[in-house]
Design a protein around this nucleic acid. Structure first.
Length: 421
RNA sequence: GGUGGAGUCGCCUAGUGGCCGAGGGCGCACGCCUCGAAAGCGUGUGUAGGGCAACCUACCGUGGGUUCAAAUCCCACCUCCACCGCCA
């Protein structure tokens, strides 16, 4: 949710942001108009209501003929109050619906444009050179007895899989390593619910009514989360946080669920794009003025993890049009995937500024004693997709895969050996 | 799923139609007292919207309703507690 007060004071800022995203900036004018009529309706309701209350007191003090006269006037007033209230409420509803549809203000430094207008900030690590034809992650995974997509499809359908044997050990080890790093950095480890109420979903910035990406359980009106960002963001909903305790940093470990509607035919092989995967996610509540700095810290922690698993990658500054509803700025790390000869997203960190906090009502008390929204940020510390990059980048000619040194204590193996040739 | 009980200002609690946005206690903040502290005394202490301000309005689990007027009456729902049933 954008701040209506900021909108009134500086509408050009939202116009510029909308243009950077490649979206309609005329909503600014309709929002301003709606806001003005809502405020005038509200103030006329409030003065009518004040009159009604004081008249009610006169009624209780009077008696006889005077009381009857007052009563009939009071009745008249009551209908006016009711009408004025209904009017104000209707406008409030329209206003909040309109405001809720507006995406976050983008950070000025974010690249303008769409999906392909990202800016590469950094390339890290050398791409591996093989003196043999590298296998893709699925072939490797099958030979290692690590990934079983056939039975995944048999049991649950397309885009489902089993991690088996060393595959399961690899994922557990990797996620444990991520958790350990997070704890050492001062994060509170969390295992959140993965089914959430509509308010948690909406508060985090998802449009549950239109979003085809989200699994919904209509019987219970619960949503399966696509990331633990959702329950972690909502964790402090309706709370006023102690400013001295900020930043509050949480590391959530959860399964994530995505319908992948509209991605038919994309990444159908292997486990790059699946309906269910696991992820360790960093989440931070901080003061708005510290958010940009915190964002860089989250990125640095992601890079620390990528270094531990020894993957070549690049960092991109995602363009405004590709930010999603909540983010003001987003950095993705993309690991090199040898079988595809290109980089694929393995982490994503977003600065959502006060956008989610305003929707979820997560506040802190400022220097002046007044409550203000906090800023929220999130970032990936490890996820199932990393297995793709790890297997492919660390493979050897015989189909075995070297486990990166930092992972070995957590996986319990130095090398993953093929179980079938 | 069934039956019974309960949800009020950080916590506990008073409040059964107007004098209640709401009293008391605890906690907290500030002041007095003290060498310092405790005790004691005094003052203050929710959130949000609007107004330059005095101030106004909304909120007593949520949503509806009755009434000139609702924390208070009615209806539905939610949550919590207890017991029963069912499942693991």
């Amino acid at each position: 949710m954008i701040d209506l007060r900021t909108l009134r004071e500086d509408p050009d800022r939202l116009r510029a942001s909308q243009r950077a995203r490649g979206e309609d900036d005329s909503i600014v004018d309709s929002l301003l108009a709606l806001d003005a009529s809502h405020r005038s309706a509200l103030s006329s309701f409030e003065s009518l209501r004040a009159e009604q209350k004081s008249m009610g007191k006169s009624v209780s003090r009077s008696s006889g003929a005077e009381k009857d006269a007052l009563l009939s006037r009071a009745k008249e007033l009551a209908t006016q109050v009711k009408a004025a209230e209904a009017e104000a409420e209707a406008l409030a509803g329209r206003l909040s619906a309109a405001a809720a549809a507006v995406p976050n203000l983008v950070e000025e430094a974010a690249p303008h444009g769409g999906e392909d207008d990202y800016v590469v900030l950094e390339e890290v690590g050398a791409k591996p050179s093989f003196d043999f034809e590298p296998r893709d992650h699925l072939e490797l995974g099958e030979r290692l007895g690590a990934i079983d997509t056939e039975r995944g499809a048999k049991v649950s359908g397309a885009r489902f899989f089993f991690l088996t044997g060393v595959g399961a050990r690899l994922q557990l080890g990797m996620l444990n390593l991520a958790m350990q790093q997070a704890v050492e950095a001062g994060f509170t480890p969390m295992i959140p619910p993965v089914l959430v109420k509509p308010d948690a979903m909406r508060g985090t910035g998802f449009q549950v009514e239109h979003d085809k990406e989200i699994y919904h359980l209509p019987e219970d009106d619960l949503y399966l989360v696509g990331t633990s960002e959702v329950p972690l963001a909502a964790y402090h909903a309706d709370e006023i946080l102690d400013a001295a305790a900020l930043p509050l940093r949480y590391a959530g470990w959860s399964s994530c669920f995505r319908r992948e509607a509209g991605s038919y035919g994309k990444d159908t092989r292997g486990i790059i794009r699946v309906h269910q995967f696991d992820k360790v996610e960093m989440f931070s509540f901080c003061r708005p003025e510290d958010a940009a700095e915190e964002h860089r810290r989250l990125l640095a922690w992601e890079q620390e993890m990528l270094a531990k698993v020894e993957l070549p990658y690049r960092v991109i500054d995602v363009a405004a049009g590709d930010l999603g509803t909540s983010a003001a700025r987003k950095f993705d790390c993309e690991a090199w995937i040898p079988s595809q000869g290109r980089y694929r997203e393995v982490t994503s960190t977003s600065n959502c500024t006060e956008f989610q906090a305003r929707r979820l009502s997560v506040r802190h008390r400022g220097e002046d004693g007044k409550t203000r929204p906090v800023a929220t940020l999130n970032g990936t510390l490890a996820t199932t997709r990393w297995i793709v990059a790890i297997l492919e980048n660390h493979q050897r000619a015989d189909g075995s895969v070297v486990v990166p040194a930092a992972l070995r204590p957590h996986v319990g193996l130095d090398v993953l050996e093929p179980v079938k040739k």
